[in-house]
Design a protein around this nucleic acid. Structure first.
Lengths: 338, 338
DNA sequence: CTGTTAGCGCATTCAG
DNA sequence: CTGAATGCGCTAACAG
């Protein structure tokens, strides 16, 4: 019914202590005696006081909230990253606002504006697949609040980016396929405007080169990362006839492809070996023959959040780490290709 | 660098128009002439003015934000509900704060407190599996802001709940199994303190009764809804020996069970037919023999959000709809059990 | 249609 | 250690 209209003034007058002291006590300022603090805390509880964070935020110009922009929360990798971010933020007393760009640059722009308008103290962002320039981040950056990129690396001023070494992971994955006897390796890739996909493709190509395998551009399928796209790519593979392995930038696409290939009587991994990127647990359950580049998801969230919170605290310190690279791990699920 | 310190006063003094008029103009009040509005809009753009919503929120005691509590964002059903909520809210100019309870009542409590502290204008909640009483919602409710339940029905004051008819859907699903010749139907259920699971179990039992099949309590497995639990239940089924069908309250559990059963040489659906609840798209792809109760997810989000926004607008109107029931649909994926 | 006045609830100077 | 005074930026009476 009636909103809890208890303010610091109510407890101030009830106790005959000035509201400024009450404010300090409630914020656990060292400048208030323990005794007074206790008295105030007790009264506050008694009256059912709840701080009005809107007022507090206005006054301090801080919201104790970080914004997280994620391409899509339903993707397991991202929801696990979010779990890591939340754990870290909650422990530090920060709130988390999660927004999904749905891989759309327009939507991403709007979200940034909204987060700016809501004065979040910092942003963690994994840019959308459509994002190739960062002007829309500029206004936020100018505002002075920190931005940390995760998963999909970016170069924007000297903002920190937390990611794995996509080049190396791709190189290793491709080399793994080569070492298990494959030569005609197809690659599912994404938009080359995005650094992540560039790096992965480079890793793929360089592994081929190292082993003196000719790079065939027809073997690279650039597209989105849905199961549907995986199926489309698989059809392309069927037409090529001689493909004996797939290195996919994404599990979902890989699963779609495998599903289709199986319907065509292809045995996996015997006929075509598959390595996917991103560790979706369904792949483990459903496609035990899918070898996977396992990315640190939860850990990535924790680390990215920790860095962001650090930057929020030392507003001044502009000595930001340029980039943090985490290790990934190749999980080989089916021994038959070893 | 410097935060955009442009306030309405800056544009007020630049134009020699009082700040209150500026405020009105910026809010598109009908009480300001079109001419003045244009002049103000132009100057605002020129100076790069951005409203400080913190101040606005403090003044109006509204945040134009709704809170969404969801058990787990990674579950496809929920992430699609969220998509529906977001679409509706964004169109209406509202922000959405998504929080996951992770099925924990403690966490749910904290989230409610946080949302209350952040003065969201309304809450959409699908209660956690641990939630059997609603005291923790009381403080929020007392505050006067509306709460709408979705998916998992609740009776809390006269708050609206949007859900499907779980009883009927379960009845139909079970009857479908019976009509395809099954008699020993196992049921994966959840905590019976939760209305949703009660309803589903009732539907299951009543369908059996209607067809004069004895209800065997040993055939009901009450537990969480993970794949792991599905496997556990499947082991129980193997011991029972005579089970020829499963009606699961959840796709994920059903998939886990199917996976295990297959490893045991059980053919699905020939030996054991399976119906799952919740429409996880992976089930369609991966387990084409899994028949599913298809719930309206996106639509549910849209409807729940629309109702909540309506209640936020007509603060006074306490004539809340008690409950909204949406239709579900049985999607039969494998014709062999018809 | 526009200006005047007065806070929203809190945190932070500056005094003591 | 505590009190008095001030204003964050905006909006909502109330006038005119």
């Amino acid at each position: 019914m009636k909103s809890n209209k208890i303010t610091i003034h109510d407890i101030s007058s009830a106790l005959n202590i000035d509201s400024s002291t009450v404010s300090r006590a409630l914020n656990d300022s060292p400048r208030v005696s323990k005794k007074t603090k206790e008295k105030i805390a007790k009264k506050a509880a008694e009256l059912g006081y709840q701080r009005n964070s809107l007022a507090s935020n206005l006054r301090t110009n801080r919201t104790n909230t970080i914004g997280v922009i994620v391409p899509r929360i339903s993707r397991n990798f991202f929801s696990t990253v979010i779990a890591g971010i939340e754990e870290t933020a909650y422990e530090a007393g920060f709130n988390v606002v999660i927004c999904q760009s749905l891989e759309s640059i327009d939507r991403e722009k709007k979200l940034i504006e909204t987060l700016l308008a809501n004065r979040v103290d910092g942003i963690l962002i994994s840019i959308s697949m459509e994002t190739t320039s960062y002007e829309h981040l500029q206004s936020y950056y100018d505002h002075g609040s920190p931005i940390v990129f995760y998963d999909r690396p970016c170069h924007f001023h000297n903002c920190t980016a937390v990611s794995i070494d996509d080049y190396k992971a791709s190189f290793d994955a491709t080399e793994h396929l080569i070492q298990s006897g494959r030569k005609n390796i197809f690659h599912f890739s994404g938009p080359q405007e995005i650094e992540l996909y560039q790096n992965r493709k480079r890793g793929y190509k360089d592994a081929l080169k190292k082993h003196n395998i000719e790079v065939n551009e027809d073997y690279c399928h650039e597209s989105g990362l849905s199961e549907k796209e995986g199926i489309k790519a698989a059809k392309k593979i069927m037409n090529l006839k001689n493909i004996d392995a797939i290195f996919s930038a994404n599990d979902t696409a890989a699963i779609g492809a495998m599903k289709y290939l199986k319907t065509q009587g292809i045995r996996i991994p015997e006929d075509i070996a598959v390595v996917g990127f991103n560790n979706d647990p369904i792949s483990e359950v459903i496609e035990p023959s899918l070898t996977t580049v396992n990315q640190p998801d939860f850990k990535m969230g924790k680390i990215a959040a920790t860095i962001l919170l650090g930057q929020i605290k030392n507003k001044k310190a502009d000595t930001k780490d340029q980039s943090i690279v985490l290790n990934s791990e190749l999980i080989i699920r089916n021994s038959s290709i070893n």
